[in-house]
């Protein structure tokens, strides 16, 4: 991709919902505002999600008696955030605005 193509590609993502995974097993879902050459990313209207801790999962299994019990992701609203590029492990783009709903507990 040359520079023109690359910036066109990135520009079309502005304002779109992205899912950004970080290396501490957190995920941020928010609208892309801007980015730079170091892959630092600014998201707005962001929610932070994290895996439930082992203790919580174990407790849910004990309580329900079902080894495949579902435990929701722990989430909270954080608003406007910068995610430093060096910690990002994966970036996903949400195709549909409706797909977002299933992540919100």
């Amino acid at each position: 991709m040359d520079e023109v193509q690359a910036s066109a590609y990135l520009s079309q993502l502005i304002g779109k919902n992205l899912r950004i995974h970080t290396n501490d097993a957190r995920m941020f879902i928010g609208q892309l505002r801007c980015t730079d050459k170091d892959r630092n990313i600014i998201l707005s209207l962001t929610h932070e999600y994290r895996q439930p801790s082992e203790a919580t999962i174990r407790q849910a299994i004990v309580e329900s008696g079902n080894p495949t019990a579902q435990v929701p992701l722990a989430s909270r609203f954080v608003g406007l955030v910068v995610v430093p590029g060096q910690y990002i492990t994966k970036i996903e783009y949400e195709e549909s605005i409706f797909s977002r709903d299933q992540f919100v507990p």
């Binding site: 501490d24 932070e48 910690y87």
Partner: peptide, 18 residues
Amino acid sequence: MDPKMDSGFLKPGETLDD
């Protein structure tokens, strides 16, 4: 990650649960 800048940052072994 910087614990001063990131309210969700957990130290190794630290959990959110009380």
